[in-house]
């Protein structure tokens, strides 16, 4: 199996933990994995991405444009930013809840999140929109958006990994007291 997966969002949203979960779930299946992350200044509210290359044959951790099987976007604008990387027929899982940049709030830039979702709907056939606000209300926490999106990514069929491996990886990386919440979050989009 070979899969190219991009996670993207805004610094602080938990993309790195999600990419570690996918990487360790891949290792549970004895699959080779290479990743590249955004670490450093951009983690403070900037655009962040992780590239994950699962399976044999990847020489570099970066994914070329038009070669991603799946984009897991924590934010609609960031999904559109990474869209040039999606292959023809690839899948996008996106949270529809925008993170408003400070620059837009103080009138130095503009951001229309609804237009982003409309653009995704018009251009991505295999699109899963996750209602993060409803998920947070029903789960009682906004902190597990990454696991909610991961669950939706599994169900998109493009991650190439099943719930069993992801749960096993979560077991190792998630504190016991949050286990139930994370389990519910993983299943939320069913």
């Amino acid at each position: 199996m070979r899969k190219n997966v991009i996670l993207c969002g805004v610094g602080g949203q938990g993309t790195i933990l999600a990419s570690r979960l996918i990487a360790s779930a891949a290792m549970k299946k004895d699959l080779p994995i290479k990743t590249a992350e955004t670490i450093g200044m951009a983690q403070r509210g900037g655009s962040v991405f992780s590239h994950l290359r699962i399976g044999e044959g990847a020489n570099s951790p970066l994914i070329a444009k038009g070669e991603a099987d799946l984009i897991i976007a924590f934010e609609p604008g960031e999904a559109v930013r990474q869209l040039p990387f999606l292959k023809k027929g690839g899948a996008v899982v996106v949270s529809k809840r925008p993170v408003m940049p400070v620059s837009a709030m103080i009138g130095k830039s503009s951001y229309d999140a609804d237009a982003m979702i409309a653009y995704l709907q018009a251009n991505v056939e295999h699109l899963t929109i996750v209602d993060a606000d409803r998920a947070a209300a029903e789960l009682g926490s906004a902190k597990t958006l990454n696991v909610v999106l991961l669950g939706a990514a599994i169900r998109s069929g493009e991650l190439g990994l099943g719930e069993a491996e992801v749960k096993e990886a979560m077991k190792e990386r998630v504190p016991d007291k949050f286990w139930e919440l994370n389990l519910k979050s993983l299943a939320w989009s069913k």
């Binding site: 070329a64 038009g66 229309d112």
Partner: peptide, 21 residues
């Protein structure tokens, strides 16, 4: 084949500007 799958689609809306804060 660097052209994205969406190359023939309409231009995307203006992307959010996110300098680190």
């Amino acid at each position: 084949d660097a052209a994205p799958a969406q190359a023939d689609a309409s231009q995307p809306p203006a992307l959010p500007v996110r300098p680190p804060v």
